[in-house]
Design a protein around this nucleic acid. Sequence first.
DNA 1: TGACATTTGTTCATATATCGCACAGACTGA
DNA 2: TCAGTCTGTGCGATATATGAACAAATGTCA
Lengths: 252, 252
Amino acid sequence: MRETDFVSGFARGLKVIEAFGETRQRLSIAEAAKLTELDRATVRRSLLTLAELGYADYDGKFFTLTPKILRLGHAYLAATPLPALLQPHLDLLSERAGQSASASVLDDTEIVYIARASQRRVMSINLTPGSRLPAYCASMGRVLLAALAENEARAILARSELKQNTPNTKTDPEELIAEFRRVRAEGYAIIDQELEIGLCSIAVPVENDRGQTVAAINIGAPAALVPAAEMKERYLKLLKETQAALRPLLRR
Amino acid sequence: MRETDFVSGFARGLKVIEAFGETRQRLSIAEAAKLTELDRATVRRSLLTLAELGYADYDGKFFTLTPKILRLGHAYLAATPLPALLQPHLDLLSERAGQSASASVLDDTEIVYIARASQRRVMSINLTPGSRLPAYCASMGRVLLAALAENEARAILARSELKQNTPNTKTDPEELIAEFRRVRAEGYAIIDQELEIGLCSIAVPVENDRGQTVAAINIGAPAALVPAAEMKERYLKLLKETQAALRPLLRR
DNA sequence: TGACATTTGTTCATATATCGCACAGACTGA
DNA sequence: TCAGTCTGTGCGATATATGAACAAATGTCA
């Protein structure tokens, strides 16, 4: 791509949008400039543009995003048939299992939720489509990373911040690579409180009719109710049935 | 705002992202140019920028959005405390009612779902956070429009495409304005298959501790199971309880 | 099939808009 | 009061948008 085929004003603006998040609902010009490492004048122009277009509100001091910004992400959710296709199957799966069921895809080092059917909220985290979790310590992440060529998975792990979330969290890249091999061989991944104490989950890949992994689905359950050792016997069959039902629907 | 406080390259890029949706998962440069009414050369630069940043894939002919684009909408969902605050209450509400419960806010003529707890899928439409429905014919939309000053509501109706979705759909602005008055007086709105045949819903406003309406919550049910006439006696009390539980949590 | 008409992606020159810096004024808190 | 931090602005250097031009791909009709 040539230098002039890149609109840096657009790229800078997207960076400004991403600066909002978690604890940053309201941003002043200076704060946004620090977070994005862009010039204050540039950030100011981007923010004023967002406000002018109705994507942000401005009270003269702070900017906040408006729900209009959801149109952008929604362009993807509406454009991709995957979420809509998966949703009814997740609903059924969730009901049969009596636990939350979710679907996600991989975006670099993170998994992105694209659909979810929740029973009761067991996690401290609020997960909705668009939510992200580190791939290395999530059951769906393990499944999605296991589907990659080993050097690719290794490269992603190298980019990941392998954080010890709980005493159970596996953070050794070699141990993780070995686990990916097991996942590939056996077709599922189980997480025993590696992300959050008290939470277990089991995931399988969603494959299209050519056998390519296009997403992952999982069932999450409180460790207090369902010990990790029981996850497989309780839920693997249900997950495999959902997987089988989806495969013919996913043509490439 | 001065002329130079607007980054048109950014605005154009956002327009390009919004061109994706529903039936437009894959766009060629020329298609995107038509949809956005921008020059082909300009659209090409925006799309190549999106691809360069990983927000889009490009196979040499068509562009598709990647899940990374969800980071943008997620910036709002994560930044705003409202969805996370509402979710557990919706879960409880949905469980007690045995039906889907949702929350939404108003974005011009549309309501935008910001949280949802689904029981079984009864609608043909797949609703997730970020999904949009026309406000004038949705129960939450009626509640949110009723919360506005009457001239504002009138202006929004004037901008709305008042479509006759079903034989039940109210499309006369004056009739709708009168309905808003009733909603304001009685504190709830009921929709009897105005959006889709077979679907009823009832909504109430979510108010902060100053009594300002900040969102709406609803319960949807199949008309076959719950006739519109029964919606009030079955669900209004539950909705009001949720509303009361939320009010003290919403400080401005 | 072949000739012709459209459509599409790409490039280019140049007029135009944006960027980042430096500075001024406003505000805050010690 | 004064230092520190903030927002807003003017300006030259630099980057981008535009519309026309062109080649390649695609569609159309006899």
